[in-house]
């Protein structure tokens, strides 16, 4: 489903971020990408939703080469991928409900569909009572749950979570991870970039280890080990 083929990325100023990365991710997989800060995890994920372009190599999503997409095609491609970040990236002037609904609005979904799906997903993520609060009025864990709800509301094929638990306490962290596992059980491919060792060990699914822009280990039932 997702293929990274000979990917290299050099940032301006001759800073290499990725070096000849080859990786295949199948539909329905749960993949943890681990490594130190600066190992190239985020850069690799950014290529999937076309926020970065590789210096050389190709990224394929459902057999389509992402670098060949035209600018106007990118929004449609991004609607297939749910994204969650460490800093949540919620719109501060919108309530949690509006933030989640916004993802459906931009995908030009019908209002009736939005009204049905948004409360459902807020309920699944455990945000039922806080739906009318603004992001700055809820905890970091609740913000992340809202971000997760937004990423999932369009039922994407792939969920990309880039350090989603980086700012959270252990209980909220585990809440989020359980949600990710549940989503994966329903068939969504989940790619989780993290350097949280206990979490990766507990998940016990495929682990890809990166170091200095290279994939140094790829195990089907791996543990966090650098």
């Amino acid at each position: 489903m997702i293929i990274f083929e000979n990917i290299s990325k050099v940032y301006p100023g001759n800073f290499p971020a990725l070096e000849n990365v080859n990786l295949k991710i199948h539909e329905g997989e749960f993949v943890s990408i681990v490594g130190h800060s600066g190992a190239g995890k985020s850069t690799l994920l950014k290529m999937l939703y076309a926020e970065e372009q590789p210096t050389s190599g190709d990224v394929y999503f459902s057999r389509k080469n992402i670098s060949e997409f035209k600018a106007r095609e990118l929004p449609y491609h991004r609607r297939n991928i749910g994204t969650v970040f460490q800093d949540c990236k919620l719109l501060p002037k919108k309530t949690l409900t509006e933030n989640v609904a916004f993802a459906m609005e931009v995908s030009e979904k019908k209002t009736s569909e939005i009204e049905e799906a948004v409360p459902q997903i807020l309920d699944i993520t455990g945000l039922g009572k806080k739906f009318d609060a603004y992001p700055n009025e809820v905890s970091g864990g609740e913000q992340q749950k809202a971000a997760l709800a937004r990423a999932l509301v369009n039922r994407p094929k792939v969920l990309v979570a880039d350090e989603p638990t980086g700012n959270l306490d252990p209980i909220s962290t585990w809440d989020i991870v359980q949600l990710l596992l549940k989503i994966n059980e329903f068939g969504t491919t989940v790619i989780l970039a993290t350097h949280d060792k206990p979490i990766v060990d507990k998940i016990s699914k495929r682990v890809v280890v990166m170091d200095k822009g290279r994939v140094i280990r790829d195990e089907a039932h791996g543990r966090y080990c650098i």
């Binding site: 106007r72 929004p75 994204t83 919620l90 719109l91 916004f102 931009v106």
Partner: peptide
């Protein structure tokens, strides 16, 4: 930036 990421058209 967020709007772009969640797939909003220009």
């Amino acid at each position: 930036e967020i709007m772009k990421l969640i797939g909003a058209s220009n």
